[in-house]
Structure formats: structure tokens, C-alpha cells
């Protein structure tokens, strides 16, 4: 039985109230959205806050709308299930809808939120364990210790970004809106990340992610998400591949982007993708062979570490497979790519 450590819980109904309480309490306070990641982490004593501020009662943080400029604006507390099923999201951001549909299992998708998934803590098989387990091993540098059990003699934490929504949002060029006592701030999701598994986000205490904005796309937009995991449900990704293709009126690739997650502390954008695919018609044999080239590029650029469960050599060999399949799915307006 896993008990939570003691804390005080507050459930504000307005954003102002939440910001005020967080500001008052300082760094000993934490925000909880759906709780599907933070609650088990607190049970494992990875976090032992004095105050927990639940955002569940703040109505303004929920809902999906299309803004005047055509951008999708998704409230951070919108459930993953709702994002996955929403018609606007499915039409304008298919990769995001697919990614959200593959997060964990049904219960966790009705509890978990898009904002919570974006702000997910990094994961590592030496970190996401009970206190007893971690103590027996002498802890690790991410929590309570100084060693890294993944890379012998390693100086940097390599816990893996494991959020399915993040790579999809990166291919979509999404912006994140934060609010804090200092006011509002908007940042492209690409600029959120730090290459540090201990703390992989540029974030100040008291900042609350309020909305996720996905810019409008053209009619030739295609997107898909591929996820590798042991079981067909519940598990975090062993590999997550988000693909974006933008086609012109002749079905030729104008723009392309691939971002892969569950490798290291931040999602990784594969380079030279657009250079390889630009100008090719998606149903041509040239496109198919260029996809092979892109898959080989991804294989070269991605080196999974033994940071999350699953053999890392296997995860690496699956990189080109999932890149190729997810590209094909995006081109064919299908997806998600999932082995079960």
C-alpha cells in the first residue's frame, strides 16, 4: 500500500486565487492538474510538498475553441480524452489528437489533462520507484543522491521526456501561455526545454500553464503519431514519433517535420527531414525511397539510453521502423501507428 505524504490541499475556483496561493507558499507548493503523474510520484516520495494547489475547480482552464486568427486554443485543464475526440483538433492537429488518444489507458485519459501531459516530469527506471527501492540502491542524482545509474560516471541526468503530446505540439509549432504573479507570458513549446533530466523545463515557481495555442494550418496539412510500448495500453512510450507534412495543391511536400520523444531529457527534432522530402509527391516512389532516407537519418541521430524500461538497442532499431510507418500514415491521412 502506497500512502501519500502529508500535505495541505487547496482547490481554488479562479486562476487569480491559485496564483496568489502559490506565490504566498513559495517553492514548497506544487500544482496538481489531473494528478495521474504527480500523485504516484508523491506516493514514491519524489515530491513532498507542504501545499498542493489543485486546478480542477478552475472552469476557465477547460475547453477547446478556435480563435479569430484560426489558431486552436486548448485550455490546459482539458482532459486528454476530450482533446483526442474533439473534431476541431482532429481536423487541424491530427498528430496531437492521435498522440492524446494513445496516452496511458482510458481512466488515465479521462483524468489526465493536456497541460499536465505537457508539464510531465521526466522518467527513468532508477527514479520512478518507491522510496524503499531507491534507498536500497543509494538513490540517484535526480532525487536524493548524486550518482547516475544509467551512464556510469555521468554528470548530467538523462531521465527521459515521456509526454506523448509534446512532440506532436512541437511539429505543430504550438505556443504555451503561462500566468503567474508577474503576469502573462507566451512561449513557443520548442523553447520550453532544457537538456537536463532533473529539470527539463524553463519555468519559474508559480507559473501556471493556462492554454496551449496551435497555429492554423493549410488544407494540405497532414500529421500522425506513432507510439512504441510494451502493452497496447497504460504504458508510457518507449518511443514516440510525431510527423508533420504540409502538401501543396499538387500533393508535393512543402514542409515536413519529425520530433521523437522518450529518448533523453527533451524531445528531439530530426534534422534534414524537410531537405530530404521537399518537392516530392506523396504517392510517388521517390517519396517512398526518401522516407527510407529519413528513417536512416533518424536512426543515426537517435541513441536511446537505458534510462526507461525496455531494451535500448531494441528501442534504437525501432526508430527507423516507427519513422517510416508514421510518415506513411501521415501521407495517407491515417494513423496513429501502434502495434496493437
Amino acid at each position: 500500500m502506497l500512502r501519500l505524504p502529508k500535505f495541505e490541499l487547496r482547490t481554488p475556483t479562479t486562476l487569480e486565487q491559485a496564483i496568489e496561493w502559490l506565490e504566498e507558499a513559495g517553492p514548497s507548493a506544487l500544482i496538481v492538474a489531473g494528478g495521474t503523474d504527480l500523485v504516484p510520484n508523491m506516493k514514491h516520495e519524489l515530491f513532498t510538498p507542504e501545499l498542493v494547489v489543485s486546478l480542477a475547480g478552475i472552469a476557465e482552464l477547460r475547453g477547446i475553441r478556435r480563435d479569430h486568427d484560426g489558431a486552436l486554443s486548448i485550455g490546459a485543464m482539458t482532459s486528454l480524452e476530450e482533446v483526442a475526440a474533439n473534431e476541431l483538433v482532429r481536423a487541424q492537429a491530427p498528430a496531437l489528437a492521435q498522440a492524446c488518444s494513445l496516452v496511458a489507458g482510458p481512466q488515465l485519459r479521462s483524468m489526465g489533462t493536456l497541460g499536465g501531459n505537457v508539464m510531465l516530469d521526466t522518467r527513468c527506471q532508477w527514479y520512478n520507484q518507491t522510496y524503499f527501492w531507491r534507498q536500497a540502491l543509494g538513490f540517484c542524482m535526480k532525487k536524493d543522491g548524486s550518482l547516475c545509474h544509467v551512464v556510469a560516471g555521468g554528470k548530467n541526468c538523462v531521465a527521459a521526456a515521456s509526454n506523448d503530446s509534446a512532440p506532436a505540439l512541437m511539429t505543430l509549432g504550438a505556443n504555451l501561455e503561462f500566468e503567474s504573479a508577474k503576469g502573462a507570458r507566451e512561449t513557443p513549446i520548442d523553447e520550453l526545454w532544457l537538456a537536463d533530466g532533473i529539470r527539463n523545463k524553463k519555468l519559474e515557481h508559480g507559473e501556471i500553464l493556462t492554454r496551449i495555442r496551435v497555429p492554423p494550418v493549410g488544407t494540405g496539412h497532414r500529421g500522425a503519431y506513432g507510439k512504441l510500448r510494451d502493452r497496447g495500453s497504460i504504458d508510457f512510450p518507449l518511443l514516440g514519433v510525431a510527423v508533420r507534412l504540409d502538401l501543396d495543391s499538387a500533393q508535393r511536400v512543402e514542409h515536413a517535420d519529425i520530433v521523437i520523444t522518450a529518448l533523453a531529457a527533451q524531445p528531439k527534432r530530426i534534422s534534414k527531414v524537410v531537405e530530404t522530402l521537399r518537392g516530392l509527391e506523396v504517392e510517388s516512389p521517390e517519396f517512398a525511397s526518401a522516407c527510407e532516407t529519413v528513417a536512416a537519418l533518424a536512426h543515426k541521430q537517435c541513441r536511446p539510453l537505458p534510462n526507461i524500461p525496455g531494451d535500448h538497442d531494441y528501442r534504437r532499431e525501432m526508430v527507423p521502423v516507427y519513422v517510416r510507418r508514421t510518415l506513411a500514415a501521415a501521407a495517407a491521412r491515417s494513423g496513429p501507428v501502434h502495434h496493437v
Binding site: L9, T11, V32, G35, T36, V39, P40, V52, S54, A56, G57, E81, P106, Q107, L108, S110, M111
Partner: peptide, 18 residues
């Protein structure tokens, strides 16, 4: 079930579903 949706009681802070 919380409002008809499947929900995990072990990860739900009791006060947040009042």
C-alpha cells in the same frame, strides 16, 4: 465512475471530487 467517466480512485485526491 466520476460524472459517468471511468476514474482511478487511487490517484484521486478525495477533496478534489467534492
Amino acid at each position: 465512475l466520476v460524472d459517468g467517466k471511468p476514474w482511478l480512485a487511487c490517484l484521486t485526491l478525495a477533496a478534489s471530487v467534492q
